[in-house]
Deep mutational scan, measured.
Amino acid sequence: MTSCHIAEEHIQKVAIFGGTHGNELTGVFLVKHWLENGAEIQRTGLEVKPFITNPRAVKKCTRYIDCDLNRIFDLENLGKKMSEDLPYEVRRAQEINHLFGPKDSEDSYDIIFDLHNTTSNMGCTLILEDSRNNFLIQMFHYIKTSLAPLPCYVYLIEHPSLKYATTRSIAKYPVGIEVGPQPQGVLRADILDQMRKMIKHALDFIHHFNEGKEFPPCAIEVYKIIEKVDYPRDENGEIAAIIHPNLQDQDWKPLHPGDPMFLTLDGKTIPLGGDCTVYPVFVNEAAYYEKKEAFAKTTKLTLNAKSIRCCLH
C-alpha cells in the first residue's frame, strides 16, 4: 500500500463567511444568496454554514464600524470581559468565536472560507496562513488546477512579526479568498463568478477527501510576504508620492531593483532599492491607505505537500 500522510479526520463542519468587511460585496451577495438557497454549497455528509460576519458594517456598506474585524481574533480580544464599552467588532468577534470556535479547541469548525474583495488587480487569490499544512496545500492545488487556465495565486502570510489574527483563524483550516479588482461597494459579475467557482472547487475537494480519495504528493507556487511598504510621506505625515503608473495593476509581476515604484507630484520617480527582485501584491489597495500600506513585497517559492487521505471509520 502506498505510504501517505493521513489527515486527522474527515471534514464535518464548514463555514463560509461574507461581510467580514461590509463594503466587499461579492461575499456579502453570495452568502445572502446561499442563506436563501444553499443547494449549490451542500455536499453529502458535510455541514456547510453561510454566515454574515459583520452585519452592521454590511448594512452601512462600510469596511467596519469601530475597528477591523479581520485583525482582532487574538486571545487578548477574544478574552476581554464582555461589555457595551467594547468596540462593536470586538464584541462581534467574541460572538463569532462562540459560534464557530472556540479558537484553538477541538470544537472549532474544521474549515472557514472568508470571502473578500480587493481594489487591487490580484485576480483569484487564496490566502494561506501555514506553509506546513498538507491538507490546505492539497486543497489549493486542486482549486488552482480546477480553475486553469484562469490564474489563481496563493498568498502566504506566515511571518515572524506580522500577526494578522484573522476572522477565519478560529477554524482548524483557515482559508482566505480574495478576488479583484473590484471597487468597494460595487458588485461585478465576473468577480462574483470567479469567487463562486473557487468555493465550488473547494467544496468538491472536501467531498472527494471525505469519500476516501487519496491525493498524491503535489507542489504549489506561493508568494510569501516579506514586508509592507508605506507611501513616501512629508514631515507632516502626508502622502508625498503615489503608486507609479508602471507599478499600478502589476500585482504578482516581478519588481526589480531600480524599477519605478512611486511618483511625486513634481514628476520624480522613486525606484525600488535593494538588490532583490520582489513580487508586489495589494498594490494601491483602497482599504490600506489608513493602514499606511502602499503594497506588500513578496518572494516566490514552492511548497510541497505529502499525499493525504481521509481516515475512514
Results as ranks from 00 to 15, higher is better:
T2S: 14
H5N: 14
I6Q: 15
E9P: 14
E9G: 12
H10F: 09
H10Y: 10
H10A: 15
I11F: 06
K13I: 01
V14M: 01
I16V: 09
I16P: 03
G18W: 03
G18E: 03
G19H: 00
H21F: 07
N23F: 04
N23V: 05
N23E: 04
T26S: 15
F29D: 04
L30P: 05
V31L: 06
V31R: 06
K32L: 00
H33N: 15
E36A: 11
G38K: 11
G38S: 13
A39H: 12
A39N: 12
R43S: 00
L46C: 09
V48W: 03
V48R: 03
K49V: 14
P50V: 04
P50H: 03
F51H: 09
F51E: 04
I52V: 11
N54L: 00
N54P: 07
P55V: 10
R56G: 13
A57S: 11
A57M: 07
V58M: 09
T62E: 13
R63T: 11
Y64H: 10
Y64N: 09
D66Y: 06
C67I: 12
D68Y: 01
N70Q: 09
I72N: 12
I72H: 11
F73H: 11
D74S: 13
L75M: 14
E76V: 12
E76Q: 12
E76S: 12
L78K: 10
G79A: 13
G79T: 14
K80I: 13
K81T: 14
K81E: 14
S83E: 13
E84K: 13
E84N: 14
L86H: 11
P87Q: 12
Y88F: 10
V90F: 11
R91V: 14
R91K: 14
R91S: 13
R92A: 10
Q94M: 13
Q94W: 11
E95I: 09
I96F: 05
I96S: 06
N97P: 06
N97T: 12
H98N: 13
L99H: 11
L99T: 12
L99F: 12
L99V: 12
F100Y: 10
F100C: 06
D104Y: 14
E106K: 13
S108G: 13
D110V: 04
D110H: 05
I111T: 01
I111Y: 02
I112N: 01
F113V: 06
F113E: 01
H116P: 06
N117V: 01
T118R: 06
S120L: 06
S120K: 05
G123Y: 01
G123C: 01
C124Y: 03
L126I: 03
L128S: 04
D130F: 05
S131F: 06
N133W: 01
N133I: 01
F135H: 00
F135N: 04
L136N: 03
Q138C: 04
F140H: 02
F140K: 02
H141V: 02
K144F: 00
K144G: 00
K144S: 09
K144N: 01
P149Q: 00
P151Q: 09
P151G: 01
C152A: 07
Y153T: 08
Y153W: 09
L156V: 07
I157Y: 12
E158G: 07
E158D: 12
E158H: 02
H159K: 14
L162I: 13
K163M: 09
Y164S: 15
Y164I: 12
A165C: 12
A165I: 09
R168G: 10
I170R: 08
I170E: 03
A171R: 04
K172Q: 07
Y173P: 06
P174S: 15
V175Q: 04
G176W: 10
E178R: 15
Q182T: 13
Q182D: 00
Q184D: 14
Q184A: 14
Q184S: 13
G185A: 04
G185R: 02
L187D: 01
L192S: 07
D193N: 12
D193Q: 11
M195Q: 11
M195E: 00
R196N: 01
K197W: 09
K197G: 10
M198Q: 03
I199L: 09
H201C: 10
H201P: 04
I206Q: 00
I206Y: 00
H208V: 13
F209C: 02
E211V: 09
E211H: 10
K213M: 15
K213V: 15
E214C: 09
F215Q: 00
P217G: 07
A219N: 12
E221V: 00
V222L: 01
Y223A: 00
I225W: 15
I225M: 15
I226P: 03
I226Q: 10
E227Y: 04
E227D: 10
V229E: 08
D230L: 11
Y231R: 03
E235V: 10
A240V: 09
A240Q: 11
A240Y: 08
A241R: 03
A241E: 06
H244V: 00
L247H: 04
L247E: 02
D249K: 02
K253I: 07
K253Y: 06
P254A: 11
P257I: 00
P257W: 02
G258Q: 09
G258T: 09
G258F: 04
G258E: 11
G258R: 07
D259M: 08
P260Y: 00
L263Y: 07
L263T: 07
K268D: 10
T269C: 09
I270W: 00
I270D: 03
P271N: 12
P271G: 08
P271V: 11
P271L: 09
G273I: 09
G274A: 03
D275N: 11
C276L: 14
C276F: 09
P280R: 05
P280H: 06
V281K: 05
F282S: 10
F282G: 15
F282A: 11
V283L: 10
N284W: 00
N284D: 03
Y288N: 15
Y288H: 15
Y289V: 14
K291N: 11
K291H: 11
E293T: 14
A294Q: 05
A294C: 01
A294S: 01
A296M: 12
K297T: 12
T299G: 07
K300H: 01
K300E: 04
L301W: 08
T302N: 07
T302R: 09
T302E: 08
L303M: 01
L303K: 05
L303N: 06
K306V: 09
K306L: 09
S307F: 01
I308T: 05
R309C: 10
C310N: 13
C311A: 15
H313V: 15
